[in-house]
Simulated scan of single mutants.
Amino acid sequence: MAHRVGYAPGVYDLFHVGHLNILRHARSQCDYLVAGVVSDEMAALAKGRKPVVPLIERLEIVRSVRFVDAAFVETVPDKLETWEQVRFDVIFKGDDWRGTEKGARLERDFATVGVEVVYFPYTVHTSSTQLRRALDALTAPAAGAAGR
């Protein structure tokens, strides 16, 4: 049987159960799982702001998850360029990508090198974006506090 290498890219900011679920599901479908941890700069480019948790800490958290065999710092936007360095057989994405232009482009690009794209259910009730909004609300100055 061929050794199947999987790749699960993500920012993995404010690590939560959704991240854990993706890594768990990904590992169940490959022999060796590489988690691609997006750099602070790449995350800022993609999402418009830097992660709350710095790259070095996100990398350490992801590396410590028992489903992950290796962690790789993703520093380029082109996933095929990342594939040139990591050489995986399957890439795992949240199903929020399925049916979108970026998902279709990912599928087209990876079809050229024989890499399968597998989508997993997106954890709707928990996301780093929601956690970040909650943190921002907690740390925002209280309205009217300046006048006291």
Rank of each mutant, 00 (worst) to 15 (best):
Y12M: 12
C30K: 04
D31C: 05
K47C: 12
Y7T: 05
F110T: 04
H19L: 10
A26H: 03
V90T: 15
V11T: 15
A2C: 06
A70E: 02
I61H: 00
P77K: 06
L45Q: 13
F92C: 04
G36A: 06
S28K: 14
P9M: 08
L14P: 03
Q29M: 14
G6S: 11
G36D: 03
C30N: 08
D96M: 11
D40P: 08
V86D: 01
H25D: 05
G99H: 06
W83P: 07
D31I: 04
D89S: 12
F67I: 00
A70S: 01
I56H: 15
F72W: 05
F72M: 00
V62L: 02
L33P: 03
V115Q: 06
L23A: 01
F88I: 09
G6E: 10
V86Y: 02
K50W: 09
F88C: 05
A26D: 02
K47Q: 15
G94D: 11
D96Y: 10
A26Q: 02
V115F: 04
D109M: 10
P77A: 07
C30F: 04
E101F: 11
L20F: 13
D96H: 09
L20E: 02
L45H: 13
V73L: 02
P77H: 08
G36T: 08
L106P: 06
P54S: 13
K79F: 07
R58V: 03
L106Y: 07
E57P: 09
P54C: 13
G18I: 04
